[in-house]
């Protein structure tokens, strides 16, 4: 027999969080509540003599499934709020009524049934379950293995974004750049000597001529640029000394 207190505790930590499915606005809150429900269920399993299943329940549901849900919620956007206003005519009331009716009906039917409880409770320990699984139900286990693999592959396929165009090689990227009129190599950096802030000084090409477009357009408009000529003159001035200006 089961300890009634334990039962009521389990009932409380499963049913109350479960209602968040109906009333919570944020999906994250719902997910966290369901984690609680799953833990409660695991406790129930253990109470009912299925300790292995209870452990598996915690590992699979709280550990894997619900985490997966949370990941998906992250992907989708945690803050997706749901408008609880019903759009389909009659859906809310008929749905509530049907679901409640189903629950009430099941409860009333089950409540009226009396089943003789076995005097020899079985204990679903890991070794017992393992023997059963890999002897009696080995074929089912194999099939389930297939199913899981298929599901995994299916999930990969479904979430995979196909590449619609062939990958562009570097050569193609470069060719397009040149065709568009860009410099064949990197743009020359402005400034030769750091006598100023260097950004306002045009670069010089190998012939010593200043390259105009190496200076930002904005500086030119503000008239904050330096003519390269001036520097060259200073450069070529023999009377020039270190530390002038």
């Amino acid at each position: 027999m089961v300890n009634p207190v334990l039962f009521w505790i389990i009932a409380a930590i499963t049913v109350i969080p479960a209602f968040s499915l109906l009333f919570a606005r944020k999906a994250v809150h719902v997910a966290m509540s369901i984690v609680l429900v799953m833990v409660g269920l695991a406790a129930a399993y253990i109470t009912l003599g299925a300790p292995f299943l209870g452990m598996v329940q915690i590992v699979v549901y709280t550990g894997a499934v619900m985490m997966l849900f949370l990941f998906v919620l992250m992907l989708v956007g945690v803050d997706q709020r749901e408008d609880l206003k019903e759009t389909i005519k009659g859906q809310r009331w008929i749905g509530l009524f049907t679901a409640a009716g189903l629950g009430a009906f099941l409860v009333s039917v089950v409540g009226r049934v009396t089943v003789a409880v076995s005097d020899t409770p079985v204990q679903g320990d890991p070794d017992v379950v393992a023997v059963l699984l890999f002897e009696k139900y080995v074929l089912v286990i194999e099939v389930l293995g297939f199913l899981l693999i298929t599901a995994a592959v299916g999930a990969l396929v479904l979430t995979h974004t196909p590449r619609l165009k062939p990958r562009r090689t570097q050569l193609e990227v470069q060719r397009d750049r040149v065709l568009a009129g860009a410099d064949p190599v990197n743009k020359p950096m402005p400034g030769v000597y750091a006598r100023h802030n260097a950004l306002d000084v045009p670069a010089l090409d190998p012939e010593g001529q200043p390259i105009d477009h190496s200076v930002s357009r904005v500086l030119k408009i503000r008239n904050q640029t330096q003519e390269g000529v001036e520097f060259r003159a200073a450069l070529e001035d023999p009377s020039r000394k270190e530390g002038d200006r």
């Binding site: 859906q91 008929i94 049907t98």
Partner: peptide
């Protein structure tokens, strides 16, 4: 509407169970 279909299914299920 998927939910509408689900409702129909559930109603049908309830009827069958009944």
């Amino acid at each position: 509407q998927v939910r509408s279909y689900a409702l129909t299914m559930l109603v049908g299920l309830v009827i069958v169970i009944l």
